[in-house]
Amino acid sequence: MPVVAIPALIRNLTDGEESVTVDGATIREVINNLDIRYPGTKAKLCEGDRIRPGIGVYIDGVLTKVGMHERVEEDTELHFLPAISGGIAESS
């Protein structure tokens, strides 16, 4: 199952867990399942049905420009990095 690294600032919602294994075949499913287990996490990562502006999604350590529909593999590692627009988004 995909592994989600929990951003430091929302570990209060995951009982301090730094990374959790969550089922799901797409980023949407993973986030929805994460929210079922740790209520409130989705609201931190998403605005409506989109990834929050300013949050970068990393699939296996690589910044990707993907939406919620992106498929993830069995052993995918997901990071939601609170990257500020202007930094990575506009990296020179």
Binding site: P82, A83, I84, S85, G86, G87
Partner: peptide, 11 residues
């Protein structure tokens, strides 16, 4: 306006 490269600096 908001948007410094502090995110990249942190990486």
């Amino acid at each position: 306006y908001p948007g410094s490269p502090v995110g990249a600096g942190a990486m």
